[in-house]
């Protein structure tokens, strides 16, 4: 599904290398987690994959089902099935959540040459999805993320994911700012979307999210590279020992 090879990325405005040769393969239907200390490049990876400005790819490639992601506009990547759940969802005053979602769903359908969803079908669809995530009608009417609590913002991200039905989902620190109950709700939302043709890349600092969203593979990212990969037990190891051992190995 997602194939990243030797990806090197620097900041556009500064001479600062962030990613220094990332190699990562996420097969279809799998959940991969990336953990790592602050500043290791985890969020940068998610931004570069989704096409945010401000980064310059200096080497390597990233493809999704063989399509070159790096050559596409952000909206083209989305229409091709890539979704990033933001660590800090953006507030957009004046744009209603419903309008936003309907525009997004129909833009993607249009880009794929499909018919747009009718207003009635859309309403039915969003109501069902919102109910699962305990998102009430009021939250759908309000402007995108404006006045939402941390938990509401993250639930709104998962709602968007559920509505857009992407095949490759990247979750960037979706657990940050969530209390235990909210984390459970969000995780259930994610787990409900797990499917054969859908892959996840879960970026997190903490093992606790991975108790709820069980990964197939855990990667450790440090200093701009994937430095270690293993099963779910790797997350536990990090939780118990921190990153010190792994970083020490790198220095050795």
């Amino acid at each position: 599904m997602l194939s990243i090879k030797g990806l090197e990325v620097k900041l556009e405005d500064e001479d600062k290398q962030i990613l220094k040769g990332v190699d990562l393969e996420v097969p279809a239907g799998k959940v991969h987690a990336i953990m790592g200390p602050n500043g290791s490049g985890k969020s940068t990876l998610s931004y570069v994959l989704s096409g945010r400005d401000g980064y310059e790819v200096t080497a390597g490639s990233a493809t999704m089902d063989g399509e070159d992601l790096l050559d596409m506009e952000p909206e083209e990547r989305a229409a091709a099935g890539l979704f990033l759940a933001f660590q800090y969802p953006v507030e957009i005053p004046g744009v209603g959540n419903m309008t936003f979602l309907r525009t997004a769903v129909n833009s993607q359908r249009k880009a794929r040459g499909e018919d747009e969803m009718s207003a009635a079908d859309f309403l039915k669809f969003i109501r069902a999805k919102a109910k699962d995530l305990k998102i009430d009608a009021d939250m759908l009417k309000r402007p995108v993320n404006v006045g939402f609590s941390g938990g509401e913002k993250k639930r709104n991200e998962i709602l968007q994911m559920a509505m857009l039905e992407p095949k490759m989902c990247i979750l960037d620190e979706t657990d940050s700012g969530l209390d235990v109950d909210a984390m459970k709700l969000v995780s259930e939302g994610v787990n409900a979307l797990r499917a054969e043709g859908r892959s996840f890349l879960v970026i997190t600092h903490y093992q606790r999210l991975l108790d709820h969203i069980k990964p197939d593979v855990v990667h450790i990212m440090a200093r701009g590279r994937i430095v270690k990969s293993g099963g779910p037990e790797l997350a536990l190891e990090v939780e118990n020992n921190g990153y010190a051992d792994i970083l020490a190995e790198l220095d050795a």
Partner: peptide, 10 residues
Amino acid sequence: FYLRSRGVPE
């Protein structure tokens, strides 16, 4: 960027 990342053309 947020809107575009959801598939809305620029």
